[in-house]
Design a protein around this nucleic acid. Structure first.
Lengths: 340, 340
DNA sequence: CCTTTTCTTGAGAGCGCTGCCAAAAACAGG
DNA sequence: CCTGTTTTTGGCAGCGCTCTCAAGAAAAGG
C-alpha cells in the first residue's frame, strides 16, 4: 500500500513502465485495451505519481509562486490582498497548478526569501504584487534570474516586464468628476503613499479632474494616507480643519477611517461631507452609510495574472504583456446623489 | 551560468560531489579548508540546489500545505483567515519551509483538491482549518493517507488528530458574564452556524453564563449568523423585535453588521444595546463605536500550528497533541462600562 | 616507529519519473 | 504473401541530489 511506484503499476497491469507513464500523462498512441487495464489498476491501488520525481524528470513543477512583498504587509489590514490571493488561488486550481505563497513579513526577510523563490526546479513562474518603489529590487532579480514573471500592479520600471493593472488615473478622474457634477466645491482627497504607483496615479486622476473642471487644486485638501483605516482616520482629522465638502479616498479602508473621523466631528455624511472610495470590497457596505466607490475586479485580476503567467510559461511569450482591466463607479449613499 | 549542478561545483572546487553535498547541507566532518573553498565556489557561481532533485533523493519537500476548505472560503470576507494565513506563512518562513496554499472555492473542488494535496513527495505535512461538519471528510482522508496533520480549530471528531484551538466555551462565558455584571438583563446572541464547532461552543458559553447567573435562556434572543457582516445584520434585525439590551456576537464581523442594524433602527450603542464581539481583529475598531471583544491570538495560532506540525514531521510525535490558547476580553466603548 | 582510532573524502547505488529511440505488432496495398 | 507504413510497446539513459560504505589520510597511543 505504501509507496507505490510506476513500476508496481506496470507489473500489475503487465505492461512496461513507459506505458503506464503514457496513460498517466494522457499521451496518445496507447490502445484502448491497455489504457483501460492500466487505469483500472491505478484506480484500485490508489496510485499517486511522486511529485518530486516527476518534477525532476520533466523539469516542470506545476507550482506558481505568489509573492507579497513587505510593503504590502498590510496583508491582514487591507482586504485587497486576500481577495487577490483568492483570485490567484482560483486561477491555479483551474489550471492544475499549485500555489506557493510567500508573505514577506519583515524587510530583512525580503532578502532572505529570494533564494527560496529562485531555487531551480521549484517554481515554474511567479506572480509578484508590486507598485511600491521598494519592490523594484525583487522584481529586478526575478528578471535577471530569468524566471517567468507577471507583476500585479504596474511596477515602477515597467519596461521589459509583463504586468496587469487597472487604469488608476482615469478611474480616479471619473470618481472625482462624479463629485464635481453633484455640485461639490471643496473636494479633498486622501491619497495612497507617494512611493506607490497606485498612490501616485489616483492622486494624478484627482488633480486632473479638479483642474480640467475648473475647481483648481488646493494643496491643503490633499492628505496622504497609508491604505490603513487608522491612516485614513488621521488624514481626515487633518483635512477637517480646511472644511472639505467631499472626499475622494484612494481605498475603501481609508474611506472607512475617514468616515469615522467625520462622524466623531458630528458632521453628516453625505450632507456635510460626501465620500467616494476605491476598491469596492465588501467593507464598503459595512458602515452605516453605504460607500460609493470605484469597483475594481480584484479576484478577476488575480485569475488573469495567473493565466497570463501560465501562457508565458507554456508558450514563452516574448514581448512583455501589459493588461489593463476596466473599473466601474458604484453609486451608493455616501456621495449623496445618483446622478451620473 | 544556466543550470549549475552539484557536479559542476565539485569540479570547480576540485572535490567530489559528495563533499559539496555535505557542505551544502551543513554536515559535520568536512575540513575547514575544503568547506571554505566549496563555499567560495558556490558563492561566486550563485549555485542553487535543485529543489525537485533534492526532494526526490531525500524524500522531504520542505513544503507545508495550508488547506482552507470550502466552508471557509465561503466567508472569505472574514479577516480571520488572512490573519491565520499570515501566521502560518510566518511560521513556515521561520523554519525554512515553503507554504503551499489551497483555497477551496467550490464544493466540487473539495474533492478535486485532495489528490493534489496527497500526492507523494509534494508536501511534508498539512495544516487544515476546520471546525465545520463538512470538513470531516478531508481530514479523515488525510489521516488515512498517513499525512502529518495539524487541524486549526477543534474538529468534530477530535480523537486521533492533533489540533490547536482556543477555549471557545469559556471565552464566550466570560464575555457574556461581563455584560451581565454591567447590569444588562435581556442579553441576546448572534451565534455562528450550528454546524461549526466554534458556533456551537460559543453558543454554549452564552447559555452557560445566562443560566449560571440566573438570567435564564430566552430562545427568541438567540439568532444564528453565518460569520458574515450581512448575516450579522439580518440576525440583528430579527433580534431587534424582541428588544435586547445587549448582544454577544460570535465574531467581530457579525457584530459590525449587527451594529449597523441597530444604528439603522435609531437606537444608541451602548446605551440602548451593548455589544461584545469575538476575535479582536482590526475591524473591531473601524466603527464609530469601538467594539469590546474577545481577543484571540490568531497569528500566534497559525505560527503554533506550523511549529506543532514541524515537530510532528521531524520527530514523529505519537500521541495526538491538543493545544489550547488563551483569550482575553478587550474592553472598549461598545459594552458601556469598564468594570471587569 | 608501528598500530589503532578518528576524521575526511570519494565512489556509487538509488530516489521515481520522463521521453527518446528502436523493436514489435498491426494494418495496408499490390 | 511480401513489403512498406503506421501504431503500439518496451528498453534505457538520464534528471540532480542524498546517503551509505569503504578507502585513504591524519591523529593518537604504546
Amino acid at each position: 500500500m505504501s509507496h507505490l511506484t510506476l513500476e508496481d503499476i506496470a507489473e500489475q497491469a503487465r505492461v512496461s513502465r513507459s506505458t503506464v507513464s503514457r496513460v498517466v500523462n494522457n499521451h496518445p498512441n496507447v490502445s484502448e485495451d491497455v489504457r483501460k487495464r492500466v487505469l483500472g489498476v491505478i484506480q484500485n491501488t490508489g496510485y499517486q505519481p511522486h511529485a518530486a520525481a516527476r518534477a525532476l524528470a520533466s523539469q516542470r513543477s506545476w507550482t506558481i509562486g505568489l509573492i507579497l512583498p513587505h510593503s504590502v504587509s498590510f496583508f491582514f489590514t487591507d482586504p485587497y490582498y486576500p481577495h487577490l490571493t483568492k483570485g490567484v488561488a482560483q486561477g491555479c486550481n483551474q489550471h492544475n497548478y499549485t500555489l506557493a505563497l510567500f508573505l514577506v513579513d519583515t524587510k530583512e526577510n525580503e532578502e532572505k526569501i529570494f533564494p527560496g523563490v529562485a531555487r531551480k526546479g521549484f517554481l515554474d513562474g511567479v506572480v509578484v504584487q508590486s507598485g511600491h518603489h521598494g519592490d523594484q529590487g525583487i522584481i529586478g532579480r526575478m528578471i535577471d534570474a530569468n524566471i517567468p514573471l507577471v507583476v500585479a500592479g504596474r511596477p515602477f520600471r515597467s519596461d521589459n516586464v509583463s504586468y496587469i493593472d487597472i487604469d488608476n488615473v482615469n478611474s480616479a478622474y471619473h470618481a472625482v468628476s462624479h463629485l464635481i457634477r453633484l455640485g461639490r466645491k471643496r473636494i479633498g482627497t486622501i491619497s495612497g503613499p507617494g512611493n506607490s504607483t497606485v498612490g501616485i496615479d489616483r492622486l494624478q486622476g484627482y488633480r486632473k479632474a479638479m483642474t480640467e473642471r475648473g475647481l483648481g487644486i488646493d494643496e491643503t485638501l490633499i492628505a496622504e494616507g497609508d491604505f490603513t483605516e487608522t491612516g485614513g482616520y488621521y488624514a481626515m482629522r487633518k483635512l477637517l480643519s480646511y472644511k472639505p465638502d467631499a472626499i475622494f479616498a484612494a481605498s475603501d479602508v481609508m474611506a472607512m477611517g475617514a468616515m469615522r473621523a467625520v462622524a466623531e466631528a458630528n458632521l453628516n455624511i453625505p450632507e456635510d461631507v460626501a465620500f467616494v472610495g476605491f476598491d469596492d470590497l465588501p467593507i464598503a457596505t459595512y458602515s452605516d452609510i453605504q460607500l460609493t466607490t470605484v469597483r475594481q475586479p480584484v479576484v478577476q485580476f488575480g485569475i488573469l495574472a495567473v493565466e497570463t503567467l501560465i501562457d508565458l510559461i507554456e508558450n514563452g511569450i516574448k514581448p512583455p504583456r501589459h493588461i489593463i482591466l476596466d473599473t466601474e463607479l458604484i453609486i451608493r449613499e455616501s456621495c449623496g446623489g445618483s446622478h451620473r
